[in-house]
Write a protein that binds this DNA or RNA. Structure first.
Lengths: 169, 169
DNA sequence: CTCCTAAGGCAAAGGTGTGTGCGTTAGTAG
DNA sequence: CTACTAACGCACACACCTTTGCCTTAGGAG
């Protein structure tokens, strides 16, 4: 039951994006009555956000081996792998559409984590530098060029982030 | 008439995003009958995309002074200025939501232009490098951190793009 | 075994967006 | 001045999503 609904939501998100989903659509594909879904979640957006445990867990712990470059690369690779799954990429696009003035966007956790890396000993960069040089290229590709994402090697970005002449004060 | 509709669409896009817009909404705010809108455009998405002369014109011509760095910086600054306007940023988010497998995304022109810069004499980078180091940070901020966009100085990105040790073969 | 509760299916009602036929008006050509 | 065309408003019909009341069923407690 719940499994069939989850499957239907995943399929529809991957097919049509997270915005073009309606409750009756999910209900029909899952083989359940739409009233069951309305009772359980109230509306489509709530349902999607609830079934979307796909988001990276903010409490998952970050790599910390003492090797800053390796840790950053592992962190980047985690993002690449995560958004290589079509459902997660579609969900990210939904988050992009909802982003705006407020900072309640789906990537706030990533920004905090970037700042955390920048605060480690041996860092020659700021949190914003991590965003610009490591997060942005990955997210950009995940949203607009998803088929190029598996080819990304975060280590290249990390090396460029660490080795760049630090003219930016 | 058309001006009032355009104004209504811009306001609503800035307020609620490009996805939560319906024809009756626009009609009421513009003080016109919804049937006029349906006749003119057919549906909301077509209307928005048509009124979106907001998109950077692909035929606008690119800066070409012979100074590659200056040209790239001017090109980047053009994007920054463009997406500093809330309506254009909201439209970009709408495009992000619609992006996916197909390459019919709203940034394809930008990708082609990036490749154009990479093909100029004196270039030490590829089109993808331009995307990763110049376009991605700007677009990322435009979508998720719009309030940081006016602080961006594309020249910093351009310098880092050109000066990086070209380990990426 | 009986009762109770939770969950789901069914069906009807209400609300909203969408689409279209018809009359009216404005602007223009003859 | 008249005739024609194009654009707009009005009103209605349609379709879809949303919500709710009622019934049936499944599972556990007494």
């Amino acid at each position: 039951m719940l499994a069939s609904i989850r499957k239907a939501v995943e399929e529809l998100i991957a097919e049509r994006g997270s915005d073009a989903i309606t409750v009756p659509m999910v209900a029909e594909r899952a083989g359940v009555n739409h009233s069951s879904i309305y009772r359980r979640w109230g509306d489509a957006r709530t349902m999607i956000n609830d079934l979307a445990t796909y988001r990276l867990d903010p409490d998952r712990g970050l790599p910390d081996t003492g090797d800053l470059r390796a840790d950053l690369a592992a962190w980047g690779q985690e993002m690449v792998s995560h958004y290589s799954v079509p459902v997660n990429a579609a969900l990210l696009r939904g988050g992009a559409a909802a982003a705006g003035e407020s900072e309640s966007d789906c990537l706030r956790d990533r920004r905090a984590e970037a700042a955390g890396f920048a605060a480690r000993p041996g860092s020659t960069f700021t949190g914003d530098d991590v965003i610009d040089h490591l997060v942005a290229p990955i997210i950009y590709r995940a949203i607009f060029l998803p088929w190029t994402l598996p080819d990304v090697d975060p280590r290249v970005y990390v090396d460029e982030l660490c080795d760049r002449s630090d003219r930016s004060d």
